[in-house]
């Protein structure tokens, strides 16, 4: 276990969680309303989701929308910064790859 959400019962800010679920490459991932997609992915234990051209994994780096490392496709929209996009219940997140030949790169027939 590594990145995680501070449990609501221990949280000094005294928050109330409203659960939501997104899918990542078809797999359901739980989160809470208000989280960014990057927050949802990290709290679910995913530290990397994009693949660079060399095949190197990428996740959150700058966390504030500057570095574009955390790009994902959301509901068919490419190149969304996961660190600045709020998660919505039912969001379909697809991971991206710049390695040629990867499924995330040259998906046959998928519109860009």
């Amino acid at each position: 276990m590594s990145p995680r959400l501070v449990p609501a019962r221990d949280d000094s800010v005294r928050r109330t969680d409203h659960p939501l679920t997104v899918t990542v490459d078809g797999e359901p991932v739980p989160g809470i309303a208000g989280q960014t997609l990057a927050g949802v992915l990290l709290a679910a234990g995913r530290t990397a989701w994009r693949t660079a051209g060399s095949g190197a994994p990428r996740g959150v780096f700058c966390g504030i929308g500057v570095c574009f490392d955390c790009l994902v496709t959301v509901n068919g929209e490419r190149d969304v910064r996961a660190c600045t996009r709020r998660a919505h219940d039912g969001d379909a997140v697809t991971t991206q790859s710049r390695r040629s030949g990867d499924p995330g790169d040259a998906r046959a027939g998928e519109r860009p």
């Binding site: 590594s2 990145p3 995680r4 959400l5 501070v6 949280d11 800010v13 928050r15 208000g34 989280q35 960014t36 990057a38 927050g39 990290l42 709290a43 530290t47 990397a48 994994p57 990428r58 996740g59 959150v60 780096f61 700058c62 966390g63 504030i64 570095c67 660190c83």
Partner: peptide, 18 residues
């Protein structure tokens, strides 16, 4: 992955409690 900016850690901790 796992190397991030200090600002990223701060934004996630303060901004969404991750």
């Amino acid at each position: 992955p796992g190397v991030c900016t200090a600002g990223a850690a701060q934004a996630l901790a303060k901004g969404e409690r991750v």
